[in-house]
């Protein structure tokens, strides 16, 4: 009984750790894709996915450290990851990121 109580007390920590392991594994796998990735598009998608994983990590750490100050970070990573992916996508598509005004 005591063991079970102890387990429930630590349940959050254990869950966090398992999730963290999972996310880390996916980040490492995505890293492999970035390094290896046969085409640049593969790399771009991998980077985008890493961004989303990082949002998760930031949120986990926020829970782990019991603070609400990290929500900004989560949101920011969301925005930046989007912007970065768009930039890379545009680069891959057109060769430039900011086009010159032709008018």
């Amino acid at each position: 009984m005591n063991d079970f109580l102890l387990l429930t007390e630590n349940l959050l920590d254990i869950t966090l750790f398992i999730c963290f392991i999972g996310i880390s594994a996916s980040i490492i796998l995505l890293m492999y894709r970035i390094i290896k990735g046969p085409s640049n598009a593969d790399r771009a998608v991998a980077l985008d996915s890493i961004g989303i994983n990082l949002m998760g990590v930031a949120a986990f750490i926020g829970i782990f450290l019991i603070t609400s100050k990290l929500t900004d970070v989560v949101l920011l990573i969301g925005i930046l990851s989007f912007l970065g992916t768009v930039a890379i996508a545009k680069y891959l598509e057109k060769g430039v990121i900011i086009e010159r005004d032709l008018d």
Partner: peptide, 27 residues
């Protein structure tokens, strides 16, 4: 891209070491 990975990981060290302002700026 790998350079970017390093940079973001550093940002996460800032997160881990409880420096949200630095983490924001770094990202």
């Amino acid at each position: 891209l790998l350079n970017g990975v390093i940079g973001f990981s550093i940002a996460f060290f800032f997160v881990l070491f409880r420096a949200p302002d630095l983490a924001l700026t770094q990202t």
